[in-house]
């Protein structure tokens, strides 16, 4: 079930149908995987490789997973097919374990008040939409939320965030288009402090991570915030599009270098893309995936669950 339980029944059935073939053949392979031996057969590993690679897990991480499976099987021996199935999912889920702890709900008290979230990412991944949905989640647990319209570059981005503000009934601090985003962030934090807000979420313009000037600008926005609240932003949320391939690694690397990213959001998981690239990213950079986006509606944001995510790769 997992992620897919949030689709309408129709869509879920469609998806399941489409995935049926892959699923049954992998499970066929698992049952044929030479029970009781200390090695897994090549056919099974080939099949596994295909599933992982076509989910955008990437070659390096795929080989790492396969290596782990082979070692476990060599050590444990006499493994049956259902055990192998479980072992496989466990080994993948483990890659998320060292990526840090994160709160399991939207209600719990945040470590700071106001708790400042800065949202970053390349163009078109869904930063503004994610902010709109995040604001809704926090608001519905009784928290007082303020948004900062820091995307002053893309045409009508401020307008887009203001509409989300209206939908949620939360205040949006904005200076209009083509203004200094750092000063928007500064004023948003100031407003939040003066009005005793619980959460501030700062939007930023999408930027490609190889643009040094624009990455420096992000660093500046971040620095300016600490003038109002010394340890702000408490959360730097990198938004990744589930349909992005291996370039997401570079995105994670460059945005982390510029702003010390400490949380990930994976969007557009309601499509056919699996977003497997976050497995390698969480493992390599030790950054936890916190949220997933599963649609355009205001409720379509969920907390990340590694087991459901891993299941979805094989379902």
């Amino acid at each position: 079930m997992g992620i897919f339980s949030f689709f309408s029944k129709d869509k879920k059935e469609k998806l399941d149908q489409g995935l049926e073939k892959t699923k049954s053949s992998l499970f066929d392979k698992i049952s044929k995987a030479l029970v009781g031996k200390s090695t897994v057969d090549d056919d099974f590993l080939d099949q596994l490789e295909e599933i992982l690679v076509t989910s955008d897990v990437g070659i390096e991480t795929t080989l790492k997973i396969i290596d782990r499976i082979q070692k476990r099987v060599a050590a444990d021996k006499y493994i049956n097919s259902s055990e192998l199935n479980k072992l496989l999912k466990d080994e993948i889920a483990k890659l998320f374990d060292e990526s840090g702890l994160y709160e399991n709900d939207f209600e719990s008290e945040k470590s700071n008040k106001p708790y400042v979230i800065m949202v970053v990412g390349v163009n078109g991944v869904g930063k503004t939409t994610t902010i709109g949905k995040l604001a809704h989640q926090f608001k519905s647990t009784g928290k007082n939320v303020v948004l900062g319209a820091g995307d002053t570059f893309r045409a009508a981005a401020v307008q887009q965030l203001k509409i989300w503000g209206e939908r949620n009934g939360v205040h949006v601090v904005e200076h209009g288009m083509n203004t200094d985003p750092a000063s928007v962030a500064f004023d948003a934090l100031k407003y939040a402090t003066e009005n005793n807000s619980d959460i501030v979420i700062i939007d930023t313009a999408g930027r490609l991570h190889n643009r040094v000037d624009l990455m420096n600008e992000l660093g500046k926005i971040k620095r300016v915030m600490s003038k109002i609240i010394p340890d702000a932003p408490h959360e730097v949320l990198l938004v990744l599009d589930a349909s992005t391939g291996q370039n997401a690694f570079e995105q994670a690397k460059q945005f982390t270098a510029a702003t010390e990213v400490n949380a990930l959001a994976l969007t557009k998981l309601d499509g056919t893309a699996k977003g497997g690239v976050v497995i390698g990213i969480a493992d390599l950079f030790k950054i936890p995936v916190k949220y997933i986006g599963v649609g355009e509606g205001i409720d379509d944001l969920q907390l990340f669950n590694k087991h459901e995510f891993v299941d979805s790769l094989f379902n």
Binding site: D56, V122, G124, S243, G245, A248, G271, T272, A273, K274
Partner: peptide, 15 residues
């Protein structure tokens, strides 16, 4: 289509 698209590009383009 976004040039950063991964493996899913085939499914989307075909659909």
């Amino acid at each position: 289509v976004d040039s950063m698209t991964g493996q899913d590009a085939v499914n989307t383009a075909k659909a």
